[in-house]
Structures are given as structure tokens and as C-alpha cells.
């Protein structure tokens, strides 16, 4: 009986020690991140066929930083404005392939690119990544579930959505894509495909060491149509009627011009 009590007392003391040690380590690892983007705004103009942004930064250490053998790991994520999408599956109905079942996902990032120094599972545990929502598989995707929507069904549609997004280049995950130029200076080039959605983006840089997230920094990135593209787009959306009439006038003008130019007589 007394043996058990002694044992549990020992366990409690050991746990206490571990917790205080962890706290010490937290205080000790006083790394901070200083990050920057090559450009805060990416402009979509008529000759836009995609772009590339460079994310770079340094790991700043102060005097209290504990020297440890583990190397630093950097994870950079670029996440686009959220959107609501519907994923549909085709089924054969009367011999014809028809969109049948569908699941709606709310507020998912329209674009998501993740660059890291190593493979994610080498950087941290699944649990750490999941808690922080790091990695395409860990993104929060709220499904608008119907009454008889089983978890497996939603998971199937969610996997399909992730796969389609990857195929379209709207989601991307690249390990060994962040490089250290010096022990503390890192950079990565993140390609933005031609079909990149426009809007406000978040660029998050996270610093890991020994499986633990030390700190993270966030930057704003804006992808916006500019010049003619911007003018046309905003006209089409804010002055739809004027835009429609102007398009018809343009068509009439072109048709008339063609008639004049090619008249034989």
C-alpha cells in the first residue's frame, strides 16, 4: 500500500520537474523571426501568366538562447482568401454521367502553398501540425453536413477536393523548398500559378526546432488585378448594366467595321 503511495508521489514530482523544465526551455528559446516579402502586392495585368514571390527572413537569437544540436526548421505557408465550394460526384443515371451527390465546404482557403525545409512529418508530430492547421491535410474545412452525412462520406469528398485543388495548382506542398543561406538567413521562392485567385493573402512563417513550434510571423500579401483587367472586372461587377450595353456596342461596332472593310463594291 505504502509502496504505491510512494510511487505516485515520485511520479508527481517527476512531472513537476518536467513541466518546469519545459517552461525553462520556452523562456530560454528566445528566438524571434524577422521576415519580409519580395513584394507586398502582386499585380494581375494583361500579360500575367503567373508570378513568383520570394519570402525571406532571419532567425534572431538573443543572449538567453539555449544552444541545442537540433537544426532550425522553417515552414512558410501562403493562404488565399477563403471561399465556399461545392464538391460534386458524377454517377451513372440512365446510362449518362450526371452530377449526383455533393458536399459543400465553407470558408476554405482558395489558395494554399506550403514550403518547408524538410518533410512535414520530420519537422513535427502530426498532433502539433494538426493543432496549428499546418499542411493541406490539416486545413480546417467545415462541411455543410446534411442529416444523413456520415463522417466517411464527408472525408471522401474532402479528399477529392484536396486532390482537385492540388491538380489545378491551387494547393501545393513542397518540402526542401526553404533553404538556409547562412545559419540564420533563409529564403524560399513561392510560385503563384496563372489561375491564382485575387484578394488578400496571409503569408505565415513558422520556426520549428526539435519538433516544437518556437514562434511564427505573419505578413500580408495582396494579389490584385491592375490596369485594364481591374477596370474591366470592376465594371462588370459594379456597373453590370453599363458593361453589358458597352459590350453590345463594341460588338455592333466590330460587325459594322467588318462590313465596311470587306465590302466588295
Amino acid at each position: 500500500m505504502s509502496g504505491v503511495a510512494a510511487n505516485s508521489g515520485l511520479l508527481a514530482r517527476a512531472l513537476l520537474a518536467l513541466v518546469s523544465l519545459l517552461c525553462l526551455a520556452r523562456e530560454g528559446s528566445a528566438e524571434t523571426l524577422v521576415t519580409a516579402l519580395s513584394e507586398p502586392t502582386v499585380k494581375i495585368t494583361s500579360n500575367f501568366t503567373g508570378a513568383e514571390i520570394v519570402v525571406f527572413g532571419t532567425v534572431e537569437r538573443d543572449a538567453t538562447t539555449v544552444e541545442r544540436p537540433d537544426a532550425y526548421d522553417i515552414v512558410v505557408t501562403v493562404s488565399g482568401p477563403t471561399e465556399t465550394v461545392v464538391t460534386r460526384r458524377k454517377d451513372r443515371v440512365f446510362g449518362v454521367w450526371v452530377n449526383n451527390e455533393a458536399v459543400r465546404f465553407m470558408d476554405i482557403p482558395s489558395f494554399y502553398a506550403l514550403h518547408s525545409t524538410r518533410r512535414l512529418n520530420e519537422i513535427a508530430d502530426e498532433k502539433v501540425l494538426r493543432d496549428r492547421g499546418i499542411g493541406a491535410a490539416n486545413l480546417e474545412m467545415r462541411a455543410e453536413a446534411g442529416v444523413n452525412d456520415s463522417a466517411e462520406r464527408i472525408a471522401t469528398f474532402r479528399d477529392a477536393l484536396l486532390r482537385l485543388k492540388l491538380q489545378e495548382g491551387l494547393y501545393a506542398q513542397r518540402s526542401s523548398a526553404v533553404g538556409f543561406l547562412s545559419p540564420s538567413l533563409f529564403r524560399t521562392n513561392i510560385p503563384l500559378p496563372a489561375n491564382v485567385p485575387h484578394g488578400n493573402y496571409k503569408v505565415t512563417v513558422s520556426l520549428f526546432r526539435g519538433g516544437a513550434l518556437l514562434t511564427s510571423e505573419q505578413q500580408k500579401l495582396r494579389i490584385a488585378k491592375a490596369g485594364f483587367e481591374q477596370f474591366t472586372y470592376s465594371m462588370a461587377h459594379t456597373n453590370a448594366l453599363v458593361y453589358g450595353l458597352a459590350t453590345v456596342l463594341m460588338a455592333l461596332g466590330t460587325g459594322w467595321l467588318a462590313g465596311v472593310m470587306f465590302r466588295k463594291e
Binding site: 488565399g80 482568401p81 477563403t82 471561399e83 465556399t84 465550394v85 461545392v86 464538391t87 460534386r88 460526384r89 458524377k90 454517377d91 451513372r92 446510362g95 449518362v96 454521367w97 452530377n99 459543400r104 470558408d107 482558395s110 469528398f157 477529392a160 477536393l161 486532390r163 482537385l164 485543388k165 485567385p197 485575387h198 484578394g199
Partner: peptide, 19 residues
């Protein structure tokens, strides 16, 4: 219409994303 599509799944954006 009759041939089995390469990918049975598809998605379309309902709202948001690029607004």
C-alpha cells in the same frame, strides 16, 4: 455523356475567393 469521366469528382466555387 456516355463514357466514364476520368475524374468523377469536380468542384465549383460558390462564393468568396477573389472578392
Amino acid at each position: 455523356l456516355v463514357l466514364e469521366p476520368v475524374d468523377l469528382y469536380s468542384f465549383s466555387v460558390l462564393s468568396g475567393g477573389g472578392q
